[in-house]
Write a protein that binds this DNA or RNA. Structure first.
Length: 582
RNA sequence: CGGGCUGUAGCGCAGGGGCUAGCGCGCUUGGUUCGGGACCAAGAAGUCGGCGGUUCAAAUCCGCCCAGCCCGACCA
């Protein structure tokens, strides 16, 4: 590609609002342009990179038996009604009516569409296992897009769907993805870790997320520095100290001005772990008619811990949670600040196991300025016991007892064992060897392509610009021509192209400074500079980005040299790739 | 959805009731320069986010709306 013909231009200054380095350079180098909040166009350089990422993904998913298909972005709402997600997912799922008034949705993921295809195509165990995937646009109307390409509304995603006749089969496909994902991220040059995760709106049991650890991330990751346990904070467990003792008689005590646990503990001169706090949320639910309703949830947790909302939502089997308003709390006979489930009308009570395994805790008396001391689970109040506590820095690893550390991460991929959640809801079954019908066992596996690019830009950028790895960089060589009245640059360009090397040739009539700065900004891994100095000795300058020194190479050897370098750069990435297995 | 900020040329910004709306970069033409964002000269380019109001007069004041960014709620 000749830069004089390149569609995009580089920007000297960062557009307003480009907060992170990676995002700024993607804009300035002309990879992407913004069209609206969370909506981006890919320009030629950006699209070339995206295509390379996609092809790496294709190769690895093909290698584990995937067959590429394409499903539509617009789905009839019917299939989303079949699984109930039409009702349970909030405004993030965009709905509209077609001209005849039929409900339609813009697909934010494709479990429904994939299951619909599968129920048509898979009729026998002989067709299983099978794996389909696509690389396609998704629309999720995120309430708050931000951080450039990290959190967008329209994005490209690779999503695969596995179908099996039994759980062993699912397990196998799941493991295959687990490894394939490490290869994909490894070949792209992005360091990631796999963490145990919440299955969220996907349903299902086992799930992992692939996290790029970075301060720009919005997910909190719990890491055990000793045994290597990793988990999203949404599901991370930890060892809770247990304080059990003989139950004592419950008593009401006057506790003026103690609306918070800190105040209460100070006032009574007890540790926070001797208190139980009530956290009140409104959970949204769907009834059998598909109508939404809300119900107050009272979460009870020991005063020294905090509630993890994702865990609470799962334990309460709610579609969503929001903090309850004061009047909603009072309507159940609870007094905010002095609240607990004791003596109230609340039915939906979730009790953290820290509370059920402790005794004689101080809890709200639902009366202004009063608390009960010596409250005990089961004797004084009841509820569903679950782990709803949020892990934090320094908490104890449940596996090895080491203090945990926390890190921020960006989720670039995820894998879910769905089981029969969709196949049962949509009647996707097959005939077994015994001649019976059984629901297909499913898995779903996603990678955010644009987000992966954004993370790569973040990870590899230098002070002066991008520096994407050779495997995904838009071009392999940047040829900078500084000489006039010489056919050498054009000849080298043509020779490299003839050999299949991907070259960006700066043939513009611009000053050397402009060309070098643009080359730095775009950051193609190898740079050949043709200047008068070298030309006198029939050589050109070769610079490999990331290396200190550049070298002079005879014109006759440059094509061979560059091909060697490119292949060694690719093998260096492949060789250092860390692939983990489940 | 709550709070804050911003919308003026392609990009970054200044201007803040009155006369022809400016600056830097970028862009066009001509010339010089030619290994780290060169210089000279001449140009092109604006519904001042939109609608309405106040006024003799609005980019400027007022109201409503829209869009984008940041923080939070939210989120695969």
């Amino acid at each position: 590609m000749k830069m004089s013909q390149l569609f995009s231009k580089t920007l000297r200054e960062a557009p307003a609002g480009a907060e992170s380095k990676g995002y700024e350079f993607l804009l300035r180098a002309g990879f992407i342009r913004q069209l609206g909040a969370g909506i981006f166009s890919s320009l030629p350089l950006g699209l070339r990179t995206v295509r390379k990422i996609e092809n790496i993904i294709r190769a690895e998913i093909d290698a584990i038996g995937g067959q590429e298909i394409q499903m539509p972005l617009v789905n009839p709402a019917d299939i989303w009604k079949e699984t109930g997600r039409f009702y349970s997912i909030d405004k993030e799922l965009s709905r509209f009516e077609d001209r005849t008034g039929r409900d339609m949705v813009l697909a934010m993921t494709h479990e429904e569409a994939a299951t619909d295809i599968a129920r048509g195509e898979i009729d026998s165990y002989k067709k299983l296992p099978s794996l389909i995937y696509q690389i396609q646009t998704k629309w999720r109307d995120d309430p708050r897009p931000r951080a450039g390409l990290i959190r967008v509304r329209e994005f490209t995603m690779k999503d695969s769907y596995s179908f099996d006749k039994d759980w062993e089969g699912l397990e196998k496909q799941y493991k295959a993805h687990y490894e394939a994902y490490f290869k994909i991220f490894g070949k792209c040059g992005l360091p990631v870790i796999a963490v145990g995760s919440d299955s969220g709106m996907m349903g299902g049991k086992v799930a992992h997320e692939y996290m790029y650890l970075s301060p720009i991330g919005e997910d909190s990751i719990v890491i055990c520095p000793d045994c290597g346990l990793t988990a999203n904070r949404q599901v991370a467990t930890f060892k809770k100290e247990i304080f059990s003792e003989d139950p004592l008689e419950m008593e009401e005590v006057h506790t003026p001005g103690t609306k918070t646990i800190d105040d209460l503990a100070t006032f009574l001169d007890i540790p926070k772990s001797k208190t139980a706090k009530g956290v009140f949320m409104m959970g949204s639910y769907t009834n059998d008619e598909g109508e939404e309703y809300e119900e107050l949830i009272c979460a009870v947790i020991r005063g020294d811990l905090d509630v993890e909302e994702a865990k609470l939502q799962n334990a309460a089997k709610a579609n969503g949670l929001r903090p309850a308003h004061e009047d909603e709390i009072r309507a159940q006979g609870i007094v905010p600040g002095f609240g607990s489930p004791i003596g109230t009308a609340v039915k939906n009570i979730i009790v953290d196991d820290s509370v059920s395994s402790s005794n004689n805790l101080v809890a709200g008396a639902n009366k202004e300025e009063y608390h009960f001391i010596n409250t005990n689970f089961e004797r004084d109040f009841n509820g569903t016991v679950a782990d709803i506590a949020s892990a934090a820095e320094g908490y104890i690893c449940p596996d090895c007892g080491t203090p945990l550390t926390m890190s921020k991460g960006v989720e670039v991929g995820n894998i879910f064992q769905l089981g029969t959640r969709y196949s049962e809801a949509m009647g996707c079954s097959f005939q077994t060897e015994q001649g019976k019908r059984a629901p297909v066992i499913m898995g779903s596996y996603g990678i955010g392509v644009g987000r992966l690019l954004a993370c790569l830009a973040e990870e590899t950028s230098t002070e002066t610009g991008l520096q994407l790895p050779i495997t995904v960089a838009p071009y392999q060589v940047h040829l900078v021509g500084l000489v006039k009245n010489s056919t050498v640059p054009e000849e080298i360009y043509e020779e490299l192209q003839r050999r299949g090397v991907e070259v960006l040739f700066d043939d513009r009539k611009a000053s050397p400074g402009v060309k070098f700065n643009d080359a730095d900004l775009i950051g193609i891994p190898n740079r050949i500079t043709i200047g008068n100095r070298g030309l006198k000795e029939n050589s050109v300058e070769l610079r490999v980005l990331g290396e200190e020194e550049s070298s002079m190479v005879p014109i006759t050897e440059i094509a061979d040299r560059i091909q060697q370098i490119i292949s060694s750069q690719i093998s260096a990435i492949y060789d250092t790739m860390v692939v983990k297995s489940l």
